[in-house]
Design a binder for these strands. Structure first.
Lengths: 340, 340
DNA sequence: ACATTAAATGTAAGCGCTTACATTTATAAC
DNA sequence: GTTATAAATGTAAGCGCTTACATTTAATGT
């Protein structure tokens, strides 16, 4: 591999000049610039990015921590982020935190030790305090889907209260009055917010939230399955089920089939997130759109702006959900009676 | 940030000694090793990985190029790879090639310019020649889902002929005789192989492959939709449809519904890949398992072995597909008649 | 006690760049 | 033709490590 030294010799200039043309420094005459680029071409020179990083104290890499590399939710987010950065010559180092405190911390440590210039974090298990302390460190970061008031300018969020509200309102407007709810883990902010929006809509329709119709899941498919099974066994009847995300909704659909319920006639089911497979399930799932790809791109812009001082479109931290109506909500007709 | 120099001063030893304890060099007495680690702790020292890379000429990073960061296929693959590498302190730089020749080349260039020690490539558009030339370069790489005879020892493959065979055989065993087929782009090796296996099974059942029942798709959902629509319009009747991947199968399912066909009674549909949403569609899709996660891990092991000289479990390049029977194939009964 | 050898530690060069500062060269003003 | 000023280029010191080689110290045999 040719080095800058060989280029400088071939071009008959100093190291510094070669470095200047590489970095588009203005103070280089056209003549020498041409000599240098010619020499580079001749030698097939490629700058050594490691050496550049060491000398300039900038690794041009940004770390991304997500819970999982797989699954319908993170894909679009990573995709938007990668795209933004590659166009800027930055690279993306990706790690997975698996929603586990220890592994999330390790992941962050790992990315920092890799000299990332900035971090994009989608973390769930790590504490607010930890993140606040982290924010005092040398590596700037932005949070996706997490709100910490002390760090509010770097939290990129969905308005989950509104989303919960939209979902419930839609179901209510279809005439449902007895609505069960499978939430996420309620210590998680997003799960709590979605439920709060849900309750707001109920209140608007002068309905009380029935705690018996609440099942706390964990955002994973299996808990949707278990959730409906459990709700179905208790005595309060319901005609619709709202799930705090699509995965649980799909689990609930499977459960409904096992219980012999016809969808959506005997039970309406609503999801949340609008992951791509919601179009593929049958009946197609009505849900709430979570513009995770846009939010990913926004996080990337945040880094470009705050870490690399690039011009970006104006930064936005709060995103709005949107109702997606498909075919999983029926107009209220029959009522499930519990079997208890 | 503390540097090795400060550690050495605090511990009262030389730079080299500090470096030695970092790298677990054997020739360090226990006493000094303790002094040094104590100093490190006291200073909160973290090695600068960029400097390490420059000095050791090893970046400890491996590049991964996939077609898309999203989608059900690549997620599990990335996940397996990330896991393997993180446990070894290597990091993963991910880029997307979008099945486009220019972008794939750019992606590879990008990863190489980032001083990756090795590459894992899932490329589709780039030519064999390009890859053969690339193999002469300084950065070793392994290919997933691509066969080039000159590079056969670094091609990690699924036995697609077998997979195509298994799918067809299962459908034939259920009594179907008129079987339509939506293939991938036939210039792609995997698409061709799957079709070849399909034909083998047909031959085994003394059936001829009917070219009228072949539609060439592009592995994407929309082409599955179009494919079935088109096949349905021609004159040859068929009772089953085999698709060369799950995405197209799902597209075909939507198409079938739009055509008013009851699944699987009036039309049996078979997929390929066993991506996770095949369980969620209705009826649940019978398919062929593609152990992409294992193959990803194997690719990671290949890199560990060939690039970092690590001990790994024995390397395997050919993986076997497996039939997954769900509910989308009926025992042969009614026949669709074409509308032509 | 002394030579012989192995183990532990230190010295210093170098990895391929960037960049502050010094120097040279061109340009303009009088 | 000087001198002042700006533009272009060069010099050399790092960035924070690794590692070949040199040196010192400890262990062993006699």
């Amino acid at each position: 591999m040719a080095t800058i030294y060989e280029v400088s010799k071939l071009a008959g200039v100093s190291l510094a000049t070669v470095s200047r043309v590489m970095n588009n420094n203005a103070n280089v005459s056209d003549a020498t610039r041409k000599k240098v680029t010619a020499a580079m071409d001749e030698l097939g020179y490629r700058p050594n990015s490691i050496a550049q990083s060491l000398a300039s104290n900038c690794s041009n890499s940004v770390g991304l921590l997500v819970s999982e590399l797989q699954g319908p939710f993170y894909g679009p987010m990573m995709s938007g982020i990668e795209n933004t950065f590659r166009n800027q010559g930055k690279h993306l180092i990706i790690a997975a935190g698996h929603s586990d405190e220890e592994r999330e911390k390790q992941g962050i440590e790992f990315l920092i030790s890799r000299n990332c210039d900035g971090l994009i974090l989608h973390v769930e298990a790590v504490s607010d305090d930890y993140l606040i302390k982290l924010s005092k460190g040398r590596t700037p970061f932005v949070l996706i889907n997490r709100y910490i008031s002390e760090l509010s300018d770097r939290c990129i969020l969905l308005n989950n209260i509104k989303g919960g509200y939209l979902a419930a309102k839609h179901v209510l407007e279809q005439g449902h009055k007895d609505i069960a709810y499978i939430s996420g883990p309620l210590w998680k902010r997003d799960a709590k917010d979605r439920l709060e929006g849900h309750k707001q809509a109920l209140a608007e329709f002068n309905l009380e939230f029935d705690e018996n119709l609440l099942f706390q899941g964990d955002f994973m498919e299996a808990s949707g399955y278990e959730g409906l099974k459990s709700l179905h066994q208790q005595t309060h009847p319901f005609t619709a089920l709202i799930c705090a995300n699509d995965e649980m909704a799909v689990g609930a659909m499977a459960s409904a089939r096992d219980l012999g319920l016809t969808l959506p006639k005997q039970l309406s089911i609503m999801g949340y997130d609008n992951v791509f497979f919601t179009r593929h399930v049958y009946p197609q799932l009505s849900t709430v759109n979570y513009p995770i790809d846009e939010m990913g791109r926004m996080a990337a812009d945040w880094v470009l702006n705050h870490v690399y001082q690039k011009q970006t479109p104006p930064l936005q931290t709060l995103f709005e959900p949107e109702l997606i109506v498909r075919h999983s909500i029926s107009r209220q007709s029959a009522q499930i009676t519990s079997q208890g």
